[in-house]
Amino acid sequence: IEKFKLLAEKVEEIVAKNARAEIDYSDAPDEFRDPLMDTLMTDPVRLPSGTVMDRSIILRHLLNSPTDPFNRQMLTESMLEPVPELKEQIQAWMREKQSSDH
């Protein structure tokens, strides 16, 4: 029984630690959010139409349809242009958020 109590305490400790580690990014500025999924972008790319999306989301879309989801023009992965300035701004915002939450 004592071992179970210790195990339960350890589990509670881990759960509390994980809860502290989770950071809420739901208040991200609109320009940091993917327009299709409304999630925080981690690897922004510009489509030929000028729309900026997260790379993982547009690549997932391209698996089903080789088109720009906003104007239905033909689109391939090679046409995606990285946006390193925005990526750095997002990373800086995330770092600031992490340091203010801890």
Score class of each variant (00 low, 15 high):
P66L: 10
M41V: 03
E96D: 10
V52A: 05
A19S: 07
N71H: 01
D43V: 03
L7H: 10
Y25H: 09
E9A: 15
S78T: 07
L80P: 00
D38E: 03
A19G: 11
P35S: 02
S56F: 03
S65C: 03
E31K: 06
M41R: 01
D101A: 07
I1K: 10
L80Q: 01
T67N: 05
L7V: 07
H102P: 11
R72L: 02
K97N: 15
D27G: 14
D34Y: 05
A19P: 10
P69A: 00
I14T: 09
M74I: 10
K5N: 09
M94R: 15
A92D: 12
E77Q: 06
I90S: 02
Q91R: 13
M74L: 14
F4S: 10
E88K: 08
L40M: 10
S26C: 14
Q91P: 01
P48S: 03
A28S: 14
M74V: 09
E77K: 06
I58N: 02
M94K: 12
D38G: 03
E77D: 07
E81V: 14
R95T: 14
P44H: 00
R60P: 02
P29L: 06
E2A: 06
P44S: 00
N71T: 15
Q91E: 14
E77G: 07
S56T: 05
N18H: 09
L86P: 01
R46K: 15
E88D: 11
R33I: 05
N71I: 00
S99I: 10
D43N: 07
E31G: 10
S100R: 06
E2G: 06
I90T: 04
G50S: 05
N18Y: 08
F32I: 03
R46S: 12
D43A: 04
M37I: 04
V45G: 01
K10E: 13
L59V: 08
E85D: 11
M53R: 01
S99C: 08
L47P: 02
H102Q: 08
E12V: 06
E22A: 05
R20Q: 15
I1M: 11
K97E: 15
L63R: 10
I57V: 13
T67A: 02
S99T: 14
R46I: 08
E13G: 11
E81Q: 09
R55H: 04
R72C: 02
R33G: 02
E9Q: 07
P66S: 09
S100C: 10
L59M: 15
L63P: 03
H61N: 02
E22K: 04
M79T: 04
I58F: 01
F70Y: 15
E31V: 10
K17N: 12
E81A: 10
V83G: 01
L6H: 09
